[in-house]
């Protein structure tokens, strides 16, 4: 059996624990270590293992859900969200759309909001001849 990915929380780190959890989960989702539809541990299990309050882990899960990285279902737990529905594309712009999707996915996993994602894209476009 493969060793499952691990999270760690450093209590002496000034970053709030929920943000440490959110960042690591987002990075694992972005890198593909947590594939789409993978079930995340229940709140109580993860909170107990990390010695955190349930509300702390719940906040991290909520923020991941707001970013579209995970989906919570009543009775079904929290799972990694699948890739977003792809808009209809012509054969010519298919590779560009795929690259844009990947960029947006990774940027969201890193915690970027819509404004920063668009701004970063403009900066790169402006800097590239």
């Amino acid at each position: 059996m493969n060793e499952p990915p691990q999270l760690s929380v450093t209590t002496t780190d000034p970053t709030p624990p929920y943000e440490q959890v959110r960042r690591q989960l987002a990075a694992l989702i972005g890198s593909g270590a947590l594939p789409p539809d993978e079930r995340l541990p229940p709140l109580r299990q993860l909170a107990g293992d990390l010695g955190l309050a349930v509300g702390t882990v719940a906040r991290a899960y909520r923020e991941l859900e707001a970013a579209g990285l995970v989906v919570s279902r009543r009775g079904g737990g929290t799972r990694v969200a699948g890739p977003p529905a792809r808009p209809a594309a012509t054969a010519d712009d298919e590779p560009v759309l795929r690259a844009a999707e990947e960029y947006v996915w990774r940027a969201r996993a890193a915690g970027a909001d819509r404004g920063s994602i668009v701004a970063a894209l403009h900066r790169v476009l402006d800097a590239t001849p």
Binding site: P4, P5, Q6, S8, V9, L28, P41, L46, D49, G51
Partner: peptide, 15 residues
Amino acid sequence: GRPAGAVRRAGLRVR
């Protein structure tokens, strides 16, 4: 024991 110490780890597998 309960998790203690500055660094705490948890696996992401559902038990």
